[in-house]
Design a protein around this nucleic acid. Structure first.
Lengths: 253, 253
DNA sequence: AAGTGGTCTAGACCACTCA
DNA sequence: GAGTGGTCTAGACCACTTT
């Protein structure tokens, strides 16, 4: 062990508390085990409940804990590795892709989506809502936007039950030329939070994708992944299977 | 800004506050403009300072605000699109890749890194610390791990100034066969936070990469990106240039 | 020295789950 | 109805930056 700096800078209580709890989780608790409640924990460590909660919040952010109102705080399993392509250039909804359609409407796209698609701000687009489930848990909620120009052969007799399949089927007749993606941090909107079984405002990883065909953006999607339970994987070599927690990667500079 | 009311549904105050502030940022403030201080804002909205701070915290998480202790709260510019490959299969440190080396040591890898590399837990590895700067701002701090077995031709007369370049040069003589990456949410460790000009615990996007050569993992890196200022881009079609904020993508289901 | 955001306290009540 | 986490208050002091 190198010489760690002592006394010169007071570490915040919640930060120290987080370290102590993190170590305790490794050594004294099993995955799924329920922790003492917040009032007891705060008393045990001699801090106010708000201070304890600040530590718990960070541990939940890092995927170490799961808190559920009315139930308690449990030790979270390691994050799931979730592949978000591009494993192969395939259209969304093609083949086996672990998504389940839960709704479909044709409505004017929000301004940000119109900019993504390159359509007029008031242009109506097909909007398919899908949910991705892994190991019995919802991990992502998605809105997939398809401009009518991308699916010219769409039949006219659409019911709520046939709308989404028909749009996807038409989309798949195009040749996919490319795709790009971006990932950023966000907080769950109320509707997404409900699908993800979380409270509104929960931290999420927002994956924005654009699909190109015939030199244009043929479709776009905004996928909202639970940041607490998911590790997004990219690239050719497949998903990691390492049990990996960031806080163990400390190293001198 | 008048007071709005109509509280038939018990939406949390901080959530409503966040919406109001978000709209105000769009209509009444310019990027870089400084907001009134927290005590004044709280008084203006008739809430406790802690409640106001809860709203500000979320807006900062979403990249709308930037808060600096001793200075104030300012309106953040849109997030930067930061490419994190794989644009082409190239080794880290090769060609022009916007990273600057700030240190290099040879030391035992943490357990999680040893697992990534497939080396023994006490195996010493070359550890290169790098920083990525965009538009004059640090956006990422990285630790790049290279096992000695990957750089057998390394000369023996290494000084702190020549260590990192020599390791990278040797690494580049291997043929890169593939790479994979994962992205997850984390909070900045003290050392990374310092490089990123943030407080410890700040939300970050942790990109873990593995580089393959000769059928083995030849190197691995853990890159810590500022979640407030960065949008990570992947894929073939290049970085987005869209001004995109997630909260504007609301749509019925 | 003044002003800012960051931390912390000791309470209170609410929304939710479950026996 | 008991117990849990979620929200909220009205203070206090601290660390930091700027003047």
């Amino acid at each position: 062990m190198g010489t760690t700096q002592l006394e010169s800078v007071p570490e915040p209580k919640y930060w120290h508390l987080k370290t102590v709890l993190n170590d305790a989780l490794d050594s004294e608790f099993e995955v799924g085990e329920i922790l003492p409640n917040e009032r007891d924990l705060a008393a045990r460590f001699g801090v106010a409940r708000a201070t304890l909660r600040q530590a718990l919040e960070q541990l939940e952010l890092e995927g170490r804990l799961q808190r559920r109102r009315g139930v308690g705080t449990t030790v979270a399993p390691p994050r799931m590795g979730v592949s978000v392509g591009p494993s192969a250039n395939t259209w969304p909804g093609a083949g086996i892709d672990a998504w389940e359609t839960v709704g479909c409407v044709e409505a004017a796209a929000p301004a940000a989506i119109a900019a993504l698609l390159g359509t007029a701000p008031d242009q109506a687009v097909h909007t398919i809502r899908r949910v991705r489930v892994m190991r019995g848990q919802p991990v992502a909620a998605e809105l997939l936007y398809v401009p009518p120009a991308s699916v010219p052969g769409l039949p006219g007799d659409l019911t709520p039950a046939t709308h989404a399949p028909a749009v996807l089927r038409e989309l798949h007749t195009l040749e996919l030329e490319g795709e790009d993606r971006s990932v950023e941090l966000g907080s769950a909107r109320a509707d997404d939070a409900k699908q993800l079984d979380r409270l509104p405002g929960a931290p999420v990883l927002v994956v924005t994708a654009r699909y190109y065909a015939a030199g244009r953006v043929a479709a776009a999607s905004v996928s909202t992944y639970r940041a607490d339970t998911c590790r997004l994987t990219f690239g050719d070599a497949g998903a990691f299977e390492v049990t990996h927690h960031q806080q163990d990667t400390r190293q001198a500079s």
